[in-house]
Amino acid sequence: MYIILFLIIISLCIALGFLLAFFWAVKDGQYEDDYTPAMRILFEDQKTEENDNN
């Protein structure tokens, strides 16, 4: 039964890991502009020859 104690502690640690990851994301500024990245993802890395011919 006491294995539960162990499991609870592990689960808390994992949850804490996610909390820290969230802090990291906030600190990185991910919540400051939630609009532009959605547009940015549509850029192509390198234009192809075909695009040039358009």
Binding site: I8, S11, F18, L19, V26, G29, Y31
Partner: peptide, 23 residues
Amino acid sequence: AVNRSFYYKIGVAGFAFGNIMLL
């Protein structure tokens, strides 16, 4: 720097809420 502490507060509350419910 943009007020980030607000997000930290939400994060902490959400984290604690989930875990307390579990327990």
